[in-house]
């Protein structure tokens, strides 16, 4: 999809432990700019942990992550802890994240939800932040709800607002952790449509999802994980038609 020789995201040998349990085991993959990648796998296999590592919400225990030229290794590998966190902060600037439970700020209107980080983190001027926020809310179809509080919205509207909020930081990569899992079925499509639109604009996106049809139709390729390991990385159709691994086959049987 990109002419760039360098991949936008490059992960090699990523490991993450919780206590004595190794949750991610030497995960490596590369994603090029503009790709839409779906991550599927059984519950508890480490999908969320993977995304959280990419956004530095968790500190990796081994390996390295490079996103748009910013490289992050373990704390021990860096000169000092300060440097590590500066690096983590810089890496995070390029990454937007959308959660299963929306996590909108309940004490702020939609508009303020979208402007807050611009003003606080990027020191954007009020008017400029508002203009961008309004444009993004329009884009996800919430232009007329900008003055409402999150509690007065439906799940689908909340998730679209959360996407607008993440986009406001102008990330190069968007991460979605089961963005439609807590939505009523009739609201799922409106959220997926937003992601399709973003894909058409060339946004790089990684989506952890159980929506197999969406994964199949929209993804450039699919990563199948189990037990903290990547079992299979495959072209969208191939994995559904002809899974290479037994475990993938067993998993897909349950969903298709």
């Amino acid at each position: 999809m990109s002419n760039r020789p360098e991949p936008l995201i490059s992960i090699s040998n990523l490991c993450k432990d919780y206590g004595k349990n190794r949750i991610l085991k030497h995960v490596s993959f590369q994603i090029e700019s503009g790709d839409l990648v779906s991550v599927i796998g059984p519950s508890g296999c480490g999908k969320s942990t993977l995304l959280r590592c990419l956004n530095c919400l968790e500190v990796l225990d081994d390996g390295e992550i490079t996103i748009d030229g910013v490289c992050l290794r373990t704390v021990d590998h860096e000169k000092n802890e300060d440097f590590f966190w500066r690096q983590a902060h810089e890496l995070r600037q390029n990454v937007g994240m959308v959660f299963q439970s929306f996590n909108l700020f309940p004490h702020k209107t939609l508009l303020d939800n979208v402007t807050l980080a611009q003003i606080v983190v990027k020191h954007e001027r009020q008017e400029k932040a508002k203009a961008l926020a309004m444009a993004l809310l329009e884009k996800v179809g919430l232009g007329n709800l900008s003055g409402r509080y999150p509690w007065s919205l439906s799940g689908g509207e909340k998730q679209r607002a959360a996407i607008a909020r993440a986009l406001a930081m102008k990330p190069k990569v968007m991460l979605y952790d089961e963005p439609t899992s807590s939505l009523d079925p009739e609201m799922v499509e409106e959220v997926l449509q937003v992601m399709r639109d973003l894909d058409a604009e060339g946004m790089t996106q990684i989506i952890v999802t159980h929506e197999m049809r969406f994964a199949k139709d929209a993804s450039d390729y699919i990563i199948y994980m189990e037990n903290g390991e990547i079992i299979e990385i495959s072209d969208e159709d191939e994995i559904f038609i002809n899974p290479q691994d037994d475990r993938t086959r067993r998993f897909l049987k349950r969903y298709m």
């Binding site: 919400l57 902060h89 959660f99 909108l104 700020f105 807050l116 930081m169």
Partner: peptide, 24 residues
């Protein structure tokens, strides 16, 4: 999740506290 959302948006701990956690 509120703290995580704030951190994911690039706020540091103090900014997250000041603008997201404390008002709530």
């Amino acid at each position: 999740g509120q703290m995580e959302a704030a951190r994911a948006l690039g706020m540091n701990q103090w900014q997250s506290l000041r603008h997201v956690i404390l008002p709530q």
